[in-house]
Computed example of a mutant assay.
Amino acid sequence: MEGGVGTAAGPLIEGLVPCSGSPGLESLPAEADELERVRRLELLADLFATVSEKTVDAT
């Protein structure tokens, strides 16, 4: 495992970046693609249930 990312998840999260501004019509296809990639990770719905909201917001 390199950088905390397993080999199976690596390609799915590679290239995901924080939003750099308000989404617009120009960025809509890229935003939809990123959302689909995150959904394919099949993260548990309660993954961050034990993490404080303050900690999640800080990242």
Rank of each mutant, 00 (worst) to 15 (best):
M1D: 15
E2A: 06
G3E: 11
G3C: 07
G3R: 10
G4A: 06
G4C: 06
V5I: 10
G6P: 00
T7F: 12
T7D: 15
T7C: 10
A8L: 13
A9W: 00
G10R: 11
P11S: 02
P11D: 07
P11N: 05
P11I: 05
P11Y: 00
P11V: 01
L12F: 02
I13P: 00
G15T: 02
L16R: 01
L16Y: 02
V17A: 15
V17I: 13
P18V: 07
S20H: 12
S20I: 09
S22F: 11
P23D: 10
G24W: 03
G24L: 08
L25E: 15
E26L: 15
S27T: 09
S27R: 03
P29W: 05
E31D: 15
D33C: 01
E34L: 05
L35R: 13
L35G: 07
V38W: 03
V38R: 07
V38Y: 04
R39N: 10
R40E: 13
R40V: 02
E42Q: 09
L43A: 11
L43K: 01
L44Q: 13
A49E: 14
T50A: 12
S52H: 05
E53M: 05
E53T: 00
K54A: 15
V56S: 04
D57N: 14
D57K: 14
D57L: 14
